[in-house]
């Protein structure tokens, strides 16, 4: 497994629609120091950076209000576990995800907005599945 970090200094612009304002509003939450009345604020993520990880799915948790993907990434220091937090099931459904999109053992490449704390995890941006298909987090990001 390759340990591959790529950082992007500019926020990728997606064509998010008003109805899919979740993501944009989470970003706004950071800018406006606001408290989202969605499940939780996303201020712990750094939306100015993107990290790509190649790894093996340890667990795929298809749950509301957040889907979680635990990924094991091999590194020179040994295996490291990343916690990748997705949006709610309805949001991911809109992007083409289903409850059985991933299973333990699947090899994936995941792009995430990393935790600002430096802990191993982040907010799901997209995932490239074993069949080569890439799924984003809204219909507009596919």
């Amino acid at each position: 497994m390759k340990f591959n970090h790529t950082f992007s200094t500019s926020l990728t612009r997606y064509g998010w629609g008003p109805r899919l304002a979740l993501v944009a509003l989470f970003l706004a939450a950071i800018c406006l120091s606001a408290v989202a009345e969605a499940h939780h604020s996303f201020a712990m993520f750094d939306f100015d950076k993107k990290v790509s990880i190649d790894g093996t799915v340890k667990d795929f948790q298809w749950t509301n209000p957040h889907v979680w993907i635990d990924v094991i990434v091999e590194s020179p220091e040994g295996p490291k576990q990343y916690g990748v937090e997705g949006f709610a099931i309805p949001v991911l459904k809109g992007a083409g995800w289903t409850f059985n999109t991933l299973k333990p053992g699947d090899k994936v490449t995941i792009v995430l907005n990393p935790l600002r704390s430096g802990a191993l995890g982040g907010s799901l941006v997209s995932a490239t599945l074993p069949d080569g298909k890439t799924l984003g987090t809204s219909r507009r990001t596919q």
Partner: peptide, 10 residues
């Protein structure tokens, strides 16, 4: 909390 990246657990 927002500024520090540690949002309140409301």
């Amino acid at each position: 909390g927002e500024a520090e990246g540690k949002p309140l657990a409301n």
